[in-house]
Design a protein around this nucleic acid. Sequence first.
DNA 1: TTCATTGGCTAGTAGTACTATCTAATCTAG
DNA 2: CTAGATTAGATAGTACTACTAGCCAATGAA
Lengths: 203, 203
Amino acid sequence: MRMAELSAESGLPVATIKFYLREGLLPQGVRTSATQATYGDAHLRRLRVIRALIDAGVSVARARKVLATLDEPPDEVAALLAEAHAAVAPSGEEDVPLAEIEDLAEQLGLQCWTHRPERLAEVARAMRTLREAGFALPPEVMRTYWTSMRHIAAAEIAEIPVGDPDEAVRYVVLGTALVEPLLLALRRVAEQLATVERFPPNP
Amino acid sequence: MRMAELSAESGLPVATIKFYLREGLLPQGVRTSATQATYGDAHLRRLRVIRALIDAGVSVARARKVLATLDEPPDEVAALLAEAHAAVAPSGEEDVPLAEIEDLAEQLGLQCWTHRPERLAEVARAMRTLREAGFALPPEVMRTYWTSMRHIAAAEIAEIPVGDPDEAVRYVVLGTALVEPLLLALRRVAEQLATVERFPPNP
DNA sequence: TTCATTGGCTAGTAGTACTATCTAATCTAG
DNA sequence: CTAGATTAGATAGTACTACTAGCCAATGAA
């Protein structure tokens, strides 16, 4: 496939594809001469992944990290997940006091949180933001959040395909980045449903 | 409170506060003369909410809508929630074919989805993005997403305070916008936990 | 041979969230 | 009552992001 074709197939302007090439999101094609290269199906698939990431709100810089993880995955699943998380998660600038993290770990019933506190720190930051806005999160709701997320995580991790490592990497990395908008959208639908149940509309 | 004080108390530069004033995120202070105005605690609290929204990833334009909902809430809870959702949700440009939405509604077991299809369309878009990236979401996982989100929504809606309308508005509007990062962060912690359970690290 | 295509380069654009400066009016302290 | 500080309001500038557009020389296909 040549550039014009790749552009037509993917629906993206040539200039944009060149941009992704420059930014290292899309690997170079196979050079056939000084001013010519060909691209394969892998490039087309990659472009679709790039668009999916960017449409999902991932920045170009983070998308590059996600794709790097996809290309050179660590062999331990936990490390793979951690890399995917680090690539997608917002990296908070100010750090969270240890005491706050310890409190949180206790609240969630975690013992061995010490080996990777970044994700927990992110939870703490989100809760601080809530507090600073003057929003009191009912403890009951917080408990539901946590148990629901444990359910979700259990289901997700249980479905990691074990046969094909490539498939597993894809599942973990894309599942991390692309499922977030889906979950939030489902929450909104569920909230509207629960609302009309609790507060039936006037006739 | 004068501008300098408001700036000191909130920790925000004067220029930034003036920007929020211009953008209509922060209401004007009480004018005492042609070049002087005073601000109250309400302004300080509002600034905290603005920062929380913006830190949570809400754009200035969307924050303005959220705050407008906070200031002039509709009296029906369902309408309030819908406005809050519309303010924070990504508004997809391309629309989703009706057939796709109908399929989805059936899959989720919804009957009366017709009166407000926007949120459902958002779910459909998220799923399409997933599909286009070549990510096959296991049906079992999708089911878990949905049941978990219904649990979450039930807990959230059940805790809407009924006594004080102001508190209810605050709870719904801020809960919509500010809880999202918390949920995603909790999911990441839960995923790491589930992973070390299913794939114990090598010794 | 002739003309369209392309890689590689550089520069420009639109949008977002501030940030800085200026002016003239006012307020405050001495 | 005056000198210096403060401030509203306006305008312009900045840094960053995600493209977008143009050019040029080398190539490839007719």
